[in-house]
């Protein structure tokens, strides 16, 4: 019985390690490819590590497309998207969690209803709207659809509802208005939830592809996820394979900010899943 248990555990460990290695393989191959010189990309027997580490492909990626510009655009759009999402989200979450004005539940239903409408359905009218405003190829156009998140409001409302009423009453007695209560009581008490949801928004905005692809077609406003495909496309069909190290270098650069966040905030990012599943 004991031996059987030890055997089971060993098998489990070996299997788990094997599957982890398979899951990591694409990432390993990206790094491996990025560091290879071009001459080693198309060997009949692929090399599982470069014979010499070649950082030339990183410089090449930077030369072929304005990666710096893409990264700046992405950071800029992500910052303002988060700014508006957090701002509108926290205010509305308080109003819906704690407010007692008439029509509150009806308005909240409107917010929840928006969760059911995917951006893949609304992108055509949003595009024509931006087009009429002259916002095609502009930061306003990129940021506009991300200024509010029904999901953010929903999650923050859940968190705000758990705050004990006595704290709020005490704050009001001290003379805090609605904004004061939000700033000095709700936000500090719900910091982990805010951080988790903000991280999800950050990753979503940094990696966003669909809307940026539609609303921009100039390098000046292109974001990194779309820019990476641009880097792939600047090489013709004939050249692309021998330049895959350049594309993989670009891919590696594009994910650095996310990987840094993951290392620092791993706990919050993983707990975000759990939060998302509780209804």
């Amino acid at each position: 019985m004991r031996n059987k248990k030890i055997l089971m555990r060993t098998v489990q460990t070996i299997l788990a390690i094997g599957i982890t290695l398979i899951m990591l393989f694409p990432i390993y191959w990206m790094i491996n490819t990025a560091l290879k010189p071009s001459s080693e990309l198309l060997l009949p027997v692929p090399r599982f590590w470069p014979s010499q580490v070649d950082f030339g492909s990183f410089l090449m990626a930077w030369e072929k497309v304005p990666l710096g510009r893409y990264l700046f655009n992405t950071a800029f759009v992500t910052f303002w998207s988060l700014f508006f999402q957090i701002g509108t989200g926290i205010l509305a979450a308080y109003g819906f969690a704690r407010g007692r004005f008439p029509g509150r539940d009806l308005l909240f239903l409107l917010v929840i209803g928006a969760l059911m409408v995917p951006p893949q359905v609304t992108f055509i009218p949003l595009y024509t709207l931006c087009s009429r405003l002259g916002w095609v190829n502009s930061f306003q156009g990129l940021i506009l659809p991300n200024t509010v998140s029904a999901y953010f409001i929903f999650m923050m409302r859940q968190a705000f509802m758990t705050v004990d009423q006595s704290y709020i009453d005490a704050g009001k007695l001290e003379g805090l208005g609605v904004l004061g209560v939000i700033r000095h009581i709700m936000v500090p008490m719900c910091r982990p939830t805010i951080l988790t949801v903000a991280l999800i928004s950050f990753v979503g905005s940094w990696n966003d592809y669909f809307w940026p692809k539609i609303i921009t077609n100039k390098d000046e406003y292109r974001m990194i996820a779309v820019g990476l495909v641009r880097l792939y496309d600047v090489f013709g069909t004939n050249e692309i394979l021998e330049n895959m190290n350049v594309v993989m270098s670009g891919a590696l650069i594009s994910m650095v900010p996310i990987l840094i966040l993951f290392v620092i905030f791993q706990k919050y990012m993983l707990s975000g899943f759990t939060k998302a599943s509780m209804k």
Partner: peptide
Amino acid sequence: EFLCCLPAV
């Protein structure tokens, strides 16, 4: 409280 919800709505 209503004004808090207004921008998002």
